[in-house]
């Protein structure tokens, strides 16, 4: 890690210097190392087909992670994304199976996602329910409610000629469409966070909520906006997932792997759970890292429980690093900061 030499100020400890480095570059470096290791140990890893496939599979959780990052930047967290992504995708396929036109179904479910986002926002911003519990509950309510009200099959397949299936096939300007869409989301999110007033205020709010409020920022509407963005991106990610898989099974699980992957990407990308810190570049780096890791785990033939263990270990390491780089201040730490 030659990065420490970049910062010339002598009075900083190595930890502080490391904390100041953009974690995106750091993670990109590790990803490159991982790729190198993969190329040496696993044949068939560094082929054009595999890399393209890897990126295509990473598109869905990359998009999900962007939404999650926007919320976490504002010191919230959104656990409902997996529920929204899968539930809405399932419901869309169910409507299509019942003969509704595709765009109508998508518009309807976009409405549902919007409502979930707004409800999350209101619960967190106006009713001041801890975000963890509010979004945990709304996520379960979304997927459970959709299951009870809208689904009557265990298995839905995606019609081959639908717009959703087009999401992950074909290409735009020579780039596979899934990668193009994900890229567009990353660029837009980067512009939003870095150059718009709302984006900057969101980060300010995550850094110090009280100061942002005192300075007159519309903190509550901004929080709602964050959750709405997250829910809509979750919808897109859900379509992307279905598009890649070609079908969905509709058994409800409490914590879906999709949510877990999105959180991993966000945290590894340096978006600190204490809010206000992190960049979209970091999220991109995190998505690439997780994509490469997943691909390598599969190529090495690890069973899915073992993959869970490895991913869990990686995430623990990332959170531990975050906690080490940006420790809680014992003087200001509150007991209810979960």
């Amino acid at each position: 890690m030659g990065v420490a030499a970049v910062d010339a100020r002598p009075d900083l400890s190595p930890r502080d210097r490391l904390a100041r480095v953009e974690q995106g570059f750091f993670v990109l470096g590790i990803t490159a190392l991982l790729c190198l290791a993969g190329a040496v140990t696993t044949d068939g890893f560094l082929t054009g087909g595999n890399v393209e496939n890897l990126l295509r599979l990473s598109a869905a959780f990359g998009i999900l992670a962007v939404g999650e990052a926007v919320v976490i930047l504002a010191k919230g967290i959104d656990l409902s994304v997996a529920g929204v992504a899968l539930g809405c995708a399932q419901a869309t396929l169910a409507f299509m199976a019942d003969g509704m036109s595709e765009w109508q179904a998508i518009a309807l479910l976009a409405g549902v996602a919007l409502v979930v986002g707004v409800v999350n926002g209101i619960l967190v911003a106006y009713l001041e329910v801890p975000a963890l519990f509010a979004t945990l509950a709304t996520g379960l309510l979304t997927i459970g409610g959709i299951d009870i009200l809208l689904l009557d099959q265990n298995f839905y397949s995606l019609p081959a000629s639908s717009a959703i299936s087009e999401l992950s096939s074909g290409s735009v300007l020579g780039v596979p469409r899934a990668i193009f869409v994900a890229g567009a989301v990353f660029v837009l999110a980067w512009l939003f966070v870095s150059y718009t007033v709302a984006g900057r205020l969101t980060r300010a709010m995550g850094d110090n909520f009280d100061t942002a409020r005192s300075s007159g920022a519309p903190v509550r509407p901004l929080q709602v906006l964050g959750y709405v963005v997250s829910a809509l991106l979750a919808l897109l990610a859900g379509y992307m997932t279905v598009s890649v898989q070609g079908s969905v099974q509709t058994t409800v699980t409490s914590f879906d792997p999709l949510l877990f992957t999105a959180l991993t990407v966000t945290v590894i990308g340096g978006v600190s759970l204490s809010g206000g810190r992190g960049t979209i570049l970091g999220v991109l780096a995190g998505a690439l890292f997780v994509g490469v890791l997943n691909n390598l785990l599969i190529l090495r033939g690890l069973s899915s429980p073992l993959q869970d263990l490895v991913r869990g270990g990686v995430l623990i390491a990332a959170i531990a690093l975050d906690a080490w780089l940006h420790p809680r201040d014992e003087e200001t730490a509150r007991s209810d900061e979960l």
Partner: peptide
């Protein structure tokens, strides 16, 4: 009748 899964299966 208690199957593993009924709805839509």
């Amino acid at each position: 009748f208690v199957p593993i899964l009924y709805k839509g299966y």
